[in-house]
Design a protein around this nucleic acid. Structure first.
Lengths: 169, 169
DNA sequence: AGTGAAATCGCTTTAGC
DNA sequence: GCTAAAGCGATTTCACT
């Protein structure tokens, strides 16, 4: 996907500032971003485009209240696999994140193999989701569902404090 | 926060279409949104503003690649509480989501009380995070860390298939 | 690489219907 | 809620440092 071979050159403090701003408000205009970080708008345009092309910014998405769109029942489902046939797992990781209501999907180490974060229209729909899409799937040993009482996005930043001002120079 | 008493009136198919578009591309312009859903730009502006005011759209945020910003170690941490002193728990749910690197935090039912999704600069930093911010906290009994091999955002939509076209009429 | 200014483009917003 | 139009602000290009 990345076209530029130098995809891995590290982000400078201005890039990180842009990341932080877009994390907080993904609709901030190029002009305002430029003002905030203290560079020209033209430069800012190039930098933001580059951040997207390099995959630093993977996307900009609205955060939707599940309750408002008829999915008041949120759950975290811990899935255990058996056999670990690679093809089963690959199919799983391909299909599950694309199901409606799925907010996140995590392949993890340890006693649990996979977590699915989902929002459903009802408890019945949640049960059906687990049975139809998780339990009833080759390779799945067990799925344990935890209802989510409260779900919070991270409010902090992904940028590291130690990167914010010139570390070495 | 919501100013309008009729905050709860259900979303019509056009609102849901707007939600779906902004889920996919949070930077889509008002003009393009209007075109896509087939309403006037002025109307679209009012609707989108209303979706934000009603809290249907909670925010629009850049999705950042943790690796690119120096946080290559992702983990899901399962926390168990003891005593369940309300004040401890409230402090926890207030502070943890604001810590740097925290992507999500979930208060759940069942054997586990809380899940924290975090991205850290290193395994050492992850250990420190768990010890400093989770284990070493009043009320926390246990924290079990699962490394995340692969993390995926939901690629589907939060809108419900049954809402997309007139359900009753 | 980054800048600043200019020109184009398109968006937001306000009327009136 | 729509149309139309105006005004404004944005993005983008380009010559230059």
């Amino acid at each position: 996907m990345p076209k530029n071979p130098r995809d891995d050159k590290p982000l400078d403090p201005i890039d990180l500032a842009l990341v932080r701003l877009l994390e907080q408000d993904g609709r901030m205009s190029n002009a305002m971003l430029a003002r905030e970080v203290g560079i020209a708008e033209s430069t800012c345009l190039v930098r933001v485009r580059s951040l997207r092309e390099r995959g630093v910014v993977r996307g900009i998405h609205a955060d939707i209240d599940p309750v408002a769109v008829g999915r008041p029942v949120e759950a975290m489902i811990a899935v255990r696999f058996g056999g670990h046939r690679r093809s089963h797992f690959e199919q799983f990781t391909e299909e599950v994140p694309a199901l409606p209501g799925v907010l996140g999907a995590f392949h993890v180490s340890g006693a649990i193999d996979y977590y699915v974060h989902v929002a459903c229209p009802s408890a019945d729909a949640l049960r059906d989701f687990v049975l139809d899409h998780l339990t009833n799937r080759p390779g799945v040993l067990h799925a344990e569902t935890s209802l989510i009482f409260e779900s919070q996005r991270g409010r902090g930043t992904m940028t590291r404090p130690e990167d914010l001002l010139g570390p070495s120079a």
